[in-house]
Design a protein around this nucleic acid. Structure first.
Lengths: 219, 219
DNA sequence: CAGATTGTGTTGCAAAGGCAACAAGATTTG
DNA sequence: CAAATCTTGTTGCCTTTGCAACACAATCTG
């Protein structure tokens, strides 16, 4: 099962698309690396779609511990119900890591037939449904990784997912080794120690962000 | 922000609903406690909707360690892209915990206008969108909890969510204390030890599944 | 290019958590 | 009702992990 990423506007012509976006009151914004795209300070009724570039959903807790809650790639959604709204009073941000174009769409407009009867409203809805399914999929993966009890198991689970996605046992991490520690919610030095052990036990080979799974699990 | 759960068929009359379901090839099945509703053995193109009862999404890894990946309540969705499909070769099941009625809908039919032009297709799509958003929301919560580094923090985060949902500092856990350990992916005895400490430090009070948060966080 | 920042790699130490094992109350089931 | 099962509760021991602190390469920035 492989998911090729789709864009929200696949199957809609540029003219129709422009017309709908005007009708929806949608708008685009550009961000450059390091900028905070969204800080969830006030509730918003709009969905953000990463059109291009990269961003991360970051949580910083009261003690300054930083966690990457999510990697956002082109096609990724954020905002609204997609993000857990700060129950624990930590600061949450979507931070741009590589120059981004973000499209904002009002949620209400998407779910209600508009008076102009936009021709491709239903196509948009279908695309949105599919993007959300992809998002649900990636969150399930994250839960899968985080549900492991040890750093080693978390790494092995995450690497398995990466290698499955790459369709080979060798792949490149989508972020730095340090960020990987944030992703698996473990201490960086503890993780590096464990990776060293795993290299010595010949479970993996690493070279920078390049990782190769050696023990292709037999089961 | 409070979410009242919706049903997939809200806003659709019973007759229209029946007609659509026939048209979609949807069907209902009943399960009783302990039965395995879905084992993800073969890929399926359908969405499962819990209509009534309760179920859990369970993973059992190669060493027999059991994890509740998700609590499924009426309105919850499972199957397809909603569940991470077994990358790590562990066994995954949806298990019925209280007598369930489950509705299966073919995914393809939902996303494509049918030839019969079912009147309320778009309403169904909107409802599905909303259910998926709710699911995304609950998965975000789960990630929020699991991303905490210590058992104490995981518990506090989870209890905060529960108390927010209950709109008061006292609430009843939706599952047994033992199952809570599975939910937060920690050792049961370690969790009990930590809960004991937390009781002694007067962070919480517990009585069976009844929990009261004492330190209503000041920030 | 110099200084600042970020990423990588390492270590000692203390604390937290996992594991195993046991005991006893509660609930279910034949 | 008695046996079996599930849930709660506890403890000791040992491993894993987090934390603090350091060193050094790579990259960014004015």
């Amino acid at each position: 099962m492989k998911y090729q990423s789709i864009n929200l506007f696949d199957g809609i012509t540029t003219e129709d698309c422009d017309r709908m976006l005007t009708c929806f009151g949608a708008y685009e914004r550009r961000f450059s690396g390091g900028e905070v795209i969204c800080d969830f300070e006030e509730p918003s009724g709009s969905i953000g779609v990463i059109q291009s570039g990269r961003a991360e959903l970051i949580r910083i807790d009261a003690f300054g511990s930083r966690t990457i809650l999510e990697e956002l790639e082109p096609g990724s959604l954020f905002g609204m119900a997609f993000t857990f709204s700060d129950v624990c009073r930590d600061s949450m941000n979507v931070v741009c890591t590589a120059d981004c174009v973000v499209l904002y769409i009002d949620y209400w407009h998407v779910t209600h037939e508009c008076s102009n009867l936009c021709a491709h409203h239903s196509v948009l809805l279908q695309n949105l449904l599919r993007l959300m399914a992809e998002k649900a999929f990636s969150m399930s993966q994250r839960i899968e990784v985080l549900s492991r009890r040890s750093i080693r198991d978390k790494l092995m689970c995450y690497f398995s997912i990466c290698s499955l996605r790459a369709e080979k046992p060798e792949f490149t991490l989508p972020f730095s080794i340090s960020a990987l520690a944030d992703y698996i919610c473990s201490d960086r030095s503890a993780m590096m120690r464990e990776m060293k052990n795993m290299r010595e036990e010949r479970l993996i080979e690493t070279n920078g962000r390049r990782v190769r799974l050696l023990s292709v699990q037999e089961a």
